[in-house]
Design a protein around this nucleic acid. Structure first.
Length: 322
DNA sequence: AACTGTTTAATCCCAG
DNA sequence: CTGGGATTAAACAGTT
């Protein structure tokens, strides 16, 4: 079914890397983890470009999942049958993107291992022992737990700063007075810009929320974000999740380049918004209480010697400057 | 069989 | 120019 603007959008490749796209999908999920098939769905629902040549880009995406340390594999539990594992973001991948931008990743995320120095940085991609070796029990929200772990560590930055999302993906919506930004942000589980410094002890999905579209728009404008229709990457429906107190919004969209020379494309029509049905978190109620109550370190630690000698590793990681 | 995941390699692009 | 990141292709193994 052709949509308005399809021709101007679908043939345009989104300016996001596969890593970014995958991270978006994972971040968008309630449990901060998705099976491969749902990652596919997320991307295809939002980016018509990726509704074609699926063989090609899905292969690339799988390659990225395996190749990049920033993605960790979480096994399914027995009561979650299906193909493949869940994929989540490594808790320490916060600085992966330059200036928190989805658009470019200037630092490569690699896991460091402390127990075997000779295997550090760059040698963690061996197929030996991955997170899949973790017992599948109690890992229903390992990603959230990982986020908590990351939050508990110093200097955590959100991997995909909402500032950038505001600046790029939402501005068209904002201009149009469409989706309530704050609601969407909350739905996505993004920390409020400006709160990043003091909400690091919160788990992503539950951090504070702003509710002022005007403030967001003003902030975006103040940050010099160019206006006009662009990718509506997150044309997500706003669920009844906006229930937090309002916050000020010292938003600071930080585009990679002062003026990203992106092809002018129309924002995604609301009809592209994911119906939400595809977002079926794996047993949300199975979140390990211990994980919720404390940093995820225990969950992410190996149950057997060497079990975590993976890209998930022993949670020692580094963002390697290029 | 189809899907998922891993790995290697070639190529292009960009920043330094 | 060089190194590294991103993309694409492909082969292969394991799983459902």
């Amino acid at each position: 079914m052709p949509r308005p603007g399809k021709s101007s959008y679908s043939d345009q490749k989104p300016p996001y890397s596969y890593i970014s796209l995958t991270a978006m999908a994972i971040q968008h999920s309630a449990e901060k983890m998705l099976p491969l098939s749902d990652i596919y769905k997320f991307i295809m629902e939002r980016f018509p470009y990726y509704r074609e040549h699926t063989q090609r880009w899905q292969n690339s995406l799988r390659h990225n999942l395996s190749f990049n340390d920033c993605f960790i594999k979480i096994p399914r539990r027995p009561d979650q049958p299906g193909k493949g594992s869940f994929w989540a973001l490594h808790p320490d991948c916060g600085d992966m993107f330059e200036n928190g931008s989805f658009l470019r990743r200037r630092k490569r995320f690699k896991v460091l291992r402390s127990d075997h120095p000779h295997l550090q940085a760059g040698s963690t991609k061996s197929a030996v022992g991955r997170l899949s070796q973790f017992p599948p029990y109690g890992l229903g929200s390992a990603a959230a737990a990982a986020a908590a772990a990351a939050a508990s560590t110093s200097g955590f930055k959100h991997p995909f700063a909402i500032e950038n999302i505001i600046g790029r993906d939402y501005k068209g919506v904002l201009q149009a007075g469409g989706l309530p930004l704050a609601s969407v942000m909350h739905h996505l589980g993004y920390p409020v810009p400006g709160q990043l410094g003091n909400v690091v002890s919160s788990v992503w999905p539950h951090v504070g929320v702003m509710d002022s579209v005007a403030a967001a728009a003003a902030a975006a404008a103040a940050a010099g974000v160019p206006v006009g229709p662009e990718y509506g990457a997150f044309g997500v429906p706003v669920k009844a999740l906006c229930h937090s107190a309002s916050q000020s919004l010292p938003a600071v969209p930080v585009p990679i380049k002062p003026t990203p020379a992106l092809p002018p494309v129309a924002a995604l029509p609301p009809t592209l918004a994911v119906p939400g049905a595809s977002q079926q978190p794996p047993a949300p109620s199975t979140v390990c209480p211990a994980a919720a109550a404390s940093p995820a370190a225990p969950l992410l630690e190996p149950t057997a010697p060497g079990a975590a000698e993976t890209k998930g590793g022993s949670l020692h990681s580094v963002l390697v400057h290029s």
